[in-house]
Design a protein around this nucleic acid. Structure first.
Length: 430
RNA sequence: GCCUCGAUAGCUCAGUCGGUAGAGCAACAGCCUUGUAAGCUGUAGGUCGCGGGUUCAAUUCCCGCCCGAGGCUCCA
């Protein structure tokens, strides 16, 4: 996607208050009909139970469908774009986090426990695991860049007052990946990532961004690992990549992570609110701390550079943003139920069942409403559940072998063949 | 974690000037056989968030805690 000149204009119309940067915006949000917490309850997508624990999300069957559809799409894209999928444990030895430096910076926010006299940590990050996989054998420059991707579930202790629905939780899943490459490859990787991110986000209906380059706070270098030169070089690499893509961005000193500078691509939702999801983080520190290297063409060991990146960010949070963005009217490819088959009366139940079976065999997520209620009542339920399509079948349809289609929100869409509806749904992406 | 406000049925809420509670919807059971956003009747459902205090008596008043909402701070 080329940088849209209009976007630059728009950017000027919304001067950025640095105090708003890290999602600190959206302050005046109040419970509205489009609040994801309300939608989550009405559409039976997820819940948070006091018995289970605060900030821990229970994904209901409907929510799990959406989540898995997102994950399947995400995995397909990653496999097609040079990533390898990995799977890592939920806990690890305390020592690992000592090495990574996370313990020093974030111990109060980590779930730490002990077993057999050994300290263990519930993972707050996936990076040390991906590093360990990299480290499992010697690496040649020929195999770089190596890109490991994982839907990694992590746990971070967040203070109770900061929790908010799905937007801020204690257990969440990152669409995480770590790219191991040479210093020379970093810029190209960032360039590729900028395009990749925008393609994925467009699939979910997010087109507009505000981009930030988070750099070190020059007045407090002690808050960061690494030398001045390394930081300067890393920051320059990120800035150059952005400039090369002619993406307008704002530099935000003091917002960098302790191990390196980063690019945040904040999406703008339907209500014009800005959300931090995508983050591309440069890291020359962790590779050093874990002593990971590659063997170069010169047969010597070289330091490897790492890029941490999450595109959707935390799935829980992204799901909430997406839900509010579309006001619960999930696009058909994401809808937990795509078609509700509604028989007019018991006489048509048999035909309704065959319609349902056919849709399911076409790969459509269809449900059959065989309750004894009236047609109006079933339609009302399907509308309230925001199901994209309804297939109303009565005597007339049974005779002609067709279905009367009704579209959510727009009403009667006329008679069509079953296959035609299936085709229409698949066209919008399944 | 801090400040303010709140918590009554699965959901949305009413109510009790202190005498252990109601509605609508949902659920369940019948009836109805339905043609594009609520058909009819009935049944069941509550330790009034948890613990303590005051009182003859607490869902109601007081205190603590838990949870929620908004804000502050924070978010690898």
């Amino acid at each position: 996607m080329k940088q849209n000149p209009k976007r630059c204009v728009k950017k000027r119309e919304h001067p950025i208050d640095p105090a708003n940067v890290l999602g600190k915006k959206n302050k005046e949000r109040e419970i509205s009909a489009a609040d994801h917490r309300l939608l989550g309850q009405q559409l039976d997508l997820f819940s948070i139970s006091e018995d289970v624990g605060v900030g821990l999300v229970l994904w209901h069957p409907n929510g799990t469908i959406v989540r898995n559809v997102i994950r399947d799409y995400w995995e397909k894209e990653h496999l097609q774009n040079g990533y390898q999928l990995v799977c890592t444990p939920h806990i690890a030895r305390r020592e690992l986090w000592k090495t990574s430096g996370h313990l020093d910076y974030y111990e109060q926010n980590m779930y730490v426990f002990e077993k057999d006299g050994e300290g263990l940590v519930v993972k707050p990050m996936n990076c040390p695991f991906h590093i360990a996989i990299y480290k499992a054998r010697p690496r040649s420059y020929r195999e770089l860049p190596i890109r490991y991707a994982e839907w990694g579930t992590v746990y971070r202790y967040e203070r109770s007052g900061t929790l908010q629905g799905l937007l801020r939780v204690r257990g969440f899943t990152q669409d995480d990946a770590h790219i191991f490459c040479t210093a020379e490859q970093v810029k190209q990787e960032i360039l590729t990532l900028l395009d990749f991110t925008r393609r994925i986000m467009r699939r979910f209906g997010f087109e507009e961004y505000r981009v930030y380059l988070s750099t070190r706070d020059p007045e407090h270098p002690e808050k960061y690992m690494g030398s001045n030169e390394e930081w300067q070089r890393a920051q320059n690499a990120l800035a150059e990549a952005l400039q090369e893509k002619t993406i307008a961005f704002r530099e935000v000193p003091g917002e960098a992570v302790f191990y390196g500078p980063k690019i945040d691509m904040n999406i703008v939702d339907a209500a014009g609110r800005e959300w931090q999801c995508t983050t591309l983080q440069f890291d020359f520190n962790l590779p050093k701390r874990f002593n990971i290297t590659y063997v170069g063409a010169d047969n010597k060991e070289h330091e490897v550079v790492m890029i941490h990146r999450a595109l959707l960010g935390a799935i829980e949070r992204f799901f909430a943003i997406l839900l509010e963005h579309c006001n619960g009217n999930l696009p058909t490819w994401l809808a937990p139920v795509q078609v509700s088959v509604i028989p007019v009366s018991d006489d048509c139940l048999e035909y309704a069942e065959s319609v349902h079976r056919k849709l399911v065999s076409c790969g459509i997520r269809a449900e059959l409403d065989d309750s004894t209620s009236t047609v109006s009542y079933k339609i009302r339920n399907a509308e309230l559940q925001k199901i994209p399509y309804m297939a109303i079948v009565g005597k007339h349809e049974a005779e002609t072998g067709r279905i009367a289609v009704r579209k959510h929100g727009t009403g009667n869409a006329g008679s069509m063949a079953i296959k035609e509806l299936a085709r229409q749904i698949r066209k919008h992406g399944n």
